[in-house]
Amino acid sequence: MAEEKITEQFDTEAILEVRNLRKCFPLKKTLTGKVTQELVAVDNVSFKLKRGETLGIVGESGCGKTTLGRTILKLHQSNGGQIIFDGQDITDLKSSQMRDIRKKMQIIFQDPYSSLPPRSTVGGILSEPVEVHKIVPKSEIKSYVLDLMEKCGLRDYYYERYPHEFSGGQRQRICIARALSVNPELVICDEPVSALDVSIQAQIINLLKELQQKLNLTYVFISHDLSVVKFISDKIGVMYLGSMVEFGSKEDIFSNPLHPYTQALFSAIPQPDPDIKMNRIILSGDIPSPANPPKGCRFHTRCPKATDKCKEVTPEYKDYGNGHCAACHLLG
């Protein structure tokens, strides 16, 4: 009975659902270990993601994109809210219980230089997870890994080589191959291309898209590069200072950005045509410290349209039709 209830409760179509997720880091502690000041890195974030879709998460640096990604994977323990993966609430699972779920959700890191262990060969890096999770029988591991390397555009003689012998793009391919080695359903891409130069970026993005089609993967694609996000995403979430300010399908968000922050952000996309006059909305000031966020709407200190209400009352995160959600008083 209890299990049936769970399936009723959670949308089975969605592979990942996040409800009011919150993650704080302690800044100051008393001697007894009581937290007196904390930094709210992710605050009240909710979204649903269907199988096979790509969610792009954008926002400026320090807005909690990476923390959100890692909290979903439970690399950080959340401080509130729920993470529902594949119809199962994983929020409070212990790390021993997580081990089986880990192979269904993987991560690709931003820095391909520090995310590969320097003392093992490519073959070793790729076959270790396969061996630990018993993806294929022992005798087939090597052929499985070689097959995987081919899929990710790596030559078979790289098997015996070490990570330091490769360039950034090749290393990122190894990282992708490692993430895919355990046949995951969800891959969190934590700025996978921002450390690479533009021509390599395109290769890696195309590889990710191709693999998504082949393997029916779901991506959470974290980036600060709007053009990349526009290219790869089906849905887009815009984050500001730890919370989601706008969420919706790519078409909705690009054609009709609701939140003033999203509008400012999108006005900053460079146009490859010198004759087009850009109507840039210039935001004044810096992003406020997440340790001491402003009262009311978090964006009001920099918002060109802020009213008195914005300074006092936190806006509600509401659906404005067709799954296009935003948190702003101006939308009524």
Binding site: L73, L75, R99, F109, D111, P129, V132
Partner: peptide, 22 residues
């Protein structure tokens, strides 16, 4: 704190494997 250790954590490796193999 290196990212490859976080990757090992994300892979769901056991604590002893992380200490003695990585």
């Amino acid at each position: 704190e290196q990212e490859y250790m976080i990757a090992a954590e994300a892979m769901g490796f056991s604590t002893s494997r992380k200490i003695f193999k990585h």
